[in-house]
Amino acid sequence: MAMHPFAYANANSLEEAAANLDGETRPLAGGTDLVALMKDGLVAPKRLVNLKTVPGLAGVVAHADGLHIGALTTLSNLASNPELQERRDLAALVEALEESATPQLRHTATIGGNLLQWPRCWYFRNPQVPCWRKGGRRCFAFQGENKYHTIFGGGPCFAPHPSDPSVALMALDASVLVVGPQDRDHRNGFRVVPLAEFFVLPRRDHEWADGYHPVTLLETDEIVAAVVVPQAADGARSAFVKVMERGAWDFALVSAAVSLTMDGNRVAASRVVLGGVAPIPWRANQAEAALRGERVSEDGVARAVRAAVADARPLGHNEYKVALAKQALAQAFRALA
């Protein structure tokens, strides 16, 4: 498939970049997903605005409201950040980063781009297949080859969200800082969106001009500037578990991130998120409710794990993901016990 011609410009500032964006002008960060989509002829922007020339978009800075991770920070730089490495409350993020992709990809891919990935679904990625996510009429996976597809929240698209770090970040209650036009909810040019709202389940009325149904609520004239990880309560800890078919360079069959804050030996608060199972990182609210005020005992974990998958709706070939989700969660709890 031929890559379409496009114009290319370096941006000097976020505002400048955002002002130029529309459906046909797209921002370029690491490019590990966008360029591949362009090469496969799946998207054909007329212009790319390179964000890597914008000063100050990479790196980690501590602010009053938490750590600000610049959207252009590469996954490898983020994983090796000394502050992240030290903090037990952020362990889930470091683990998720280190299990993502390959070293080569992690050196190029950015955290902002990672959150904005399109699904890896083999129907979506095949230019011959007019699937719903790309503006077609139906999901081909629903009754097709769906061993890697969703068990929660599916329909009309059943492709899971591919990002590992987003699962951890959601468990850490992170938000994104979005830059966009002044005229729309952007105080001082920014709006802050919790990840729990940022990722959106597939909806027929949520589509871009090219007919694609996006995975986040980011508009085509907005840019993710940073990820904000709030200060956790004292003693908070987190863990991430990823189950793959091979030892590396594989998207998660299932992943699980758990963040716990204890009150003595009982759970004061928890955030439990599953990856690889839903069109978005999937928050397991029932598991969190089941844990509240409980000990992290074998029984407590078992109850939480059962609650987490109570609403699972597997497809024809992915019943095993229900068992895997339970095990991944249980492993994450064991890591924190």
Binding site: W122, V129, F140, Q143, G144, E145
Partner: peptide
């Protein structure tokens, strides 16, 4: 893929 006959891998 049984429905389209396309190779998914």
């Amino acid at each position: 893929d049984p429905a389209t006959g396309l190779q998914l891998t």
